Simulated assay, not measured.
Amino acid sequence: ETAAPAGYELNDSKLNFTVELQTTAKVATVSATNAEKTGSVVLNKTDSDTGKALSGAVFDLYKKDGTKLASGLTTDAKGQIKVNDLKPGDYYFIE
């Protein structure tokens, strides 16, 4: 593969196949797959009065359609939650 479709990782592995000499027509087939590119999100939780980071806040992560992807995500000492490997799309957090 020399170029991947938009939103997908390039699959640059060799796809070997053999064409055999035969008296009947037989087509060699090869399969290739692409993985979707993924992204990340960082949620920052702060105290509205002091502006300081708040640790210990617990959130759930959902896809736009309401499917829960993760629960019990807790902010760290910096008041952050980082989620990696999200496919392109719309998401939301609920505390």
Rank of each mutant, 00 (worst) to 15 (best):
F93K: 05
K37E: 14
G89S: 05
V83A: 05
A3D: 11
L10S: 12
K82F: 04
A35F: 02
S31H: 09
D65Q: 02
K37R: 13
L15M: 14
S31V: 11
K82Q: 13
D12W: 08
T2G: 15
L86G: 00
L69S: 04
L54G: 02
K64T: 07
T18A: 09
D65H: 08
L21H: 14
D60S: 11
N11C: 09
N34A: 13
D12C: 08
A3F: 08
E9I: 13
D49P: 05
E20Q: 15
G51S: 06
E36I: 08
S48H: 08
A4P: 15
D47G: 12
Q80I: 01
G56P: 05
K45F: 02
T23L: 10
P5L: 07
L86V: 00
G72Y: 01
L73H: 01
T75H: 00
L69Q: 07
L15A: 14
F17T: 10
S48M: 10
N16H: 13
A53G: 05
A32S: 15
T67K: 08
I94W: 07
E36A: 14
G72H: 02
Y8S: 13
N34T: 11
F59Q: 03
L54V: 13
G51P: 05
E95K: 09
T33L: 05
G39K: 01
G51W: 03
E20K: 15
E36Q: 14
G39I: 03
V58H: 10
V58W: 08
S55M: 06
A3C: 07
A57S: 15
A53V: 05
D76G: 11
A53N: 08
N11L: 06
T38I: 10
N44C: 03
D65N: 15
G7K: 13
L69G: 02
V27L: 10
N11T: 07
A32H: 14
E1D: 14
S13R: 14
K64F: 07
I81W: 01
S71F: 05
T46V: 15
S55Y: 11
D76N: 15
D60T: 04
E95C: 02
D60I: 02
G56L: 06
L43S: 03
D47R: 06
A6V: 12
K52C: 03
T75L: 01
G79I: 03
L86T: 00
V83Q: 06
A25E: 11
P88L: 07
V27N: 15
L73Q: 01
G72F: 01
D76H: 07
E20H: 11
T74F: 06
D49V: 10
A77W: 04
T75D: 01
L10C: 07
Q22E: 15
T38F: 06
G39E: 00
A77C: 06
Y62I: 00
K78G: 12
K82E: 04
K52E: 09
D90R: 10
L43A: 04
P5T: 12
F17G: 15
T24I: 08
A4F: 10
K45N: 02
T18V: 12
V27G: 12
A53W: 03
